[in-house]
Each structure stands twice: as C-alpha cells, then as structure tokens.
C-alpha cells in the first residue's frame, strides 16, 4: 500500500513534472516580452560589443593597412612586434604606473575628504561632518563637470613654463629656479604633473560616491563606536572602510580602467608623448599606428593588449579584495 502510494506518487510526480516544465502557451505577450527584454539586448550586445571584439582580434592577426580590402593572415606576428617595440613597451609601462598610482591616490584622497564632510566633524553630539561641509562638497565636485579635454588644455596652460600660472606663483614666491621650468617637458616632472591633473579631475566625483556610501551606514554604529572611545582615525579604519568596501572596489576598477586608457589627458597635456616618452600611453601609440602609419593590424593588436591589461587589472582588484576577506565581512554584515 505504501509502496503503491510511493509509486503512484512518483508516477504522479513524473506525470506532473513534464506538465510543470511544459512551456506555458507562447502568447504574444510572452513572446514580445522575451524579444524586447532578452532578445534585443542580447542581439545588440552581440552585434555591437562581442562582434567588434572578435573582429578586432582577427584583424590583430593580419597585416591589414586599414585602407584596402586586402589583408594577409600573419598569426601572432603583430604581438611579437609589439614585444620588440621598446616605445610601445614604454607606453605599456606608463599605463601600468598610472593604474597603480591614480586609483590609489584618488581613492585615499576622496575617502579622506568624504569622511571629513560626513562624520569627521565635532566629536560631541551626533556624528556629523565639518562645518560648511555642503559647500566643500559642491566645490570639490566642480572639476568633474568640466570635460576631460578642457581640463587637459587648462592645465597645459597652467604648466606653461614662461606664462603659466604655476611658475608665475612659484617665481613670485621667490623660487627662482622655477623660472621657465618645463613641468611637462622634464622627464622627472612630466608624469607626476600629468597624474596630478587626472586626480584633480576625479577626486570630487569619488568623494561624492563615498559620501553616498557613508550616508548608507546607520548612524548608530558611529555613536556606539564613539561611546566605546574610538577616535576619528579608528572609526574610519574599523567602521567606515569595512562597510564601504564594495564601493572602494568599484571605484578602484573604474579608476583603473580610466588609468589604463588616460588618452584624453595625455593627448591634451603632451600630444607627442612627453619628454623621452615619459607620458606616452598605449592609445596614443595605437592612434599613430592606425591612422598615421597605416598599420591597422598592429593597432588592433595594441587594442587587444589594452583589453587584456584591463581585464587583468579588474581580476587582480577582485582577487585582492577577496583574499583580504572583503567578501566574508560583507556577508557577515
């Protein structure tokens, strides 16, 4: 009896299963829903994202000049040429330096500023920011509203050796050695000066991003920490950072992608790649190879190298965050 019950139950289940998984009638409603919300985005993604990637990868293995329909398959030759090209390797190295420095400095700075305008204020009463914090918030966001190319051109003028504001101020203060000092033309200062410009443009935006994240933390945590006697640094380190970790990771990846490109800033500040190619970045080399030298195959290979570098960077950031326990703590919360 029980056996038959089980058996009938299973046959029942077996009978029911196909019915359950049977597609519901393909009404116009469902079909159009799939088409619009699944089919269309997928098709757009495949055609405009995946396909160009595949195409670029194919072109990177040809000697296509870019101006003819003819091309020969050359395998990995272009990649070999890139490895032997010391100028491209310099550009790659510069991009790596940017990817190391820009996100780190920008995030540290913007995090510090965000902490100050949200919870860094008076240590009496409820946790709050510095006085006039909304004013600081607005002005530090200003640079982000200016297009990157305009930022680059403005700073190129600021750094002008003879008529620039920077040297004007420095010589005015009595630092005679900055008379006609080429900030963007000296191998020692070109890269730091360019990095400064990028950071200047982004600190405000990431500050706002962190402010939003910090505002999402319940104020009770801060009150409790204060009662336990934690100082501002301690609170930032032990309360804020663990709770905005995901935001830091996102910011790090965004900034890293930007730093691995950095084309607009570098092209505006030093179109030629700077002294001894000190600020040359890969996309500048790519543009030159494609349109000036007519080597679209080689340029595509550079593009693929850039894509790989970006993916590697994102993978490293994820891995570091995971290894230092980021994932765990977030779930524990």
């Amino acid at each position: 009896m029980t056996e038959t019950a089980v058996a009938s139950a299973t046959t029942e289940a077996r009978r029911r299963r196909p019915r359950r998984s049977a597609r519901r009638p393909l009404t116009f409603d469902r079909v159009s829903f799939f088409l619009v919300f699944l089919g269309l985005p997928l098709a757009l993604f495949l055609v405009f994202v995946v396909w160009p990637f595949v195409q670029a990868f194919y072109y990177s293995m040809t000697d296509w000049s870019g101006f003819t329909p003819d091309m020969n398959f050359v395998g990995l030759d272009n990649y070999r040429r890139l490895l032997d090209d010391d100028i491209f390797m310099t550009a790659l190295r510069n991009n790596v330096v940017l990817a190391l420095v820009v996100p780190l400095v920008t995030i540290v700075l913007s995090f510090a500023l965000a902490t100050m305008v949200t919870v860094g204020g008076s240590s009496h009463g409820a946790a709050r920011g510095l006085r006039n914090s909304s004013f600081y918030r607005v002005i530090s966001f200003f640079p982000y509203t200016i297009p990157a190319i305009a930022i680059g051109l403005i700073w190129a003028q600021m750094y002008d050796p003879s008529n620039g504001l920077l040297n004007g101020v420095l010589t005015g203060l009595g630092f005679e050695r900055f008379e006609s000092f080429p900030w963007l033309g000296d191998t020692r200062t070109a890269m730091p000066a360019s990095i400064f410009v990028i950071i200047w443009g982004f600190v405000g935006f990431y500050m706002v991003l962190f402010i939003a994240a910090i505002k999402g933390i319940p104020a009770e945590y801060y009150d409790a920490a204060r009662i336990d006697g934690a100082g501002r640094l301690r609170i930032a380190w032990s309360i804020t950072i663990p709770l905005v970790r995901e935001t830091v990771q996102t910011a790090y990846i965004y900034l890293g992608i930007l730093a691995l490109d950095a084309f607009v800033y570098m092209a505006a500040l030093n179109p030629g790649g700077g002294p001894d190619n000190a600020t040359l970045v890969m996309p500048q080399r790519l543009l030159d190879a494609a349109f000036t030298k007519g080597q679209f195959g080689l340029a595509s290979a550079m593009g693929v190298v850039m894509a790989i570098a970006t993916l590697l960077f994102a993978a490293i950031v994820f891995a570091v965050n995971r290894l230092t326990g980021g994932h765990e703590r977030v779930t524990r919360r």
Binding site: A156, D160, S162, P182, L184, G185
Partner: peptide, 16 residues
Amino acid sequence: VKPGGAGTQFTAAQAQ
C-alpha cells in the same frame, strides 16, 4: 636657446 620649450605648446612658443 630659451629654456622650457619642451613644456611649451608650439604656438605659444612661436608667439614668444
């Protein structure tokens, strides 16, 4: 040679 040319935009230099 006037120093600082490596950091000066060329039309700015020409105006000098």
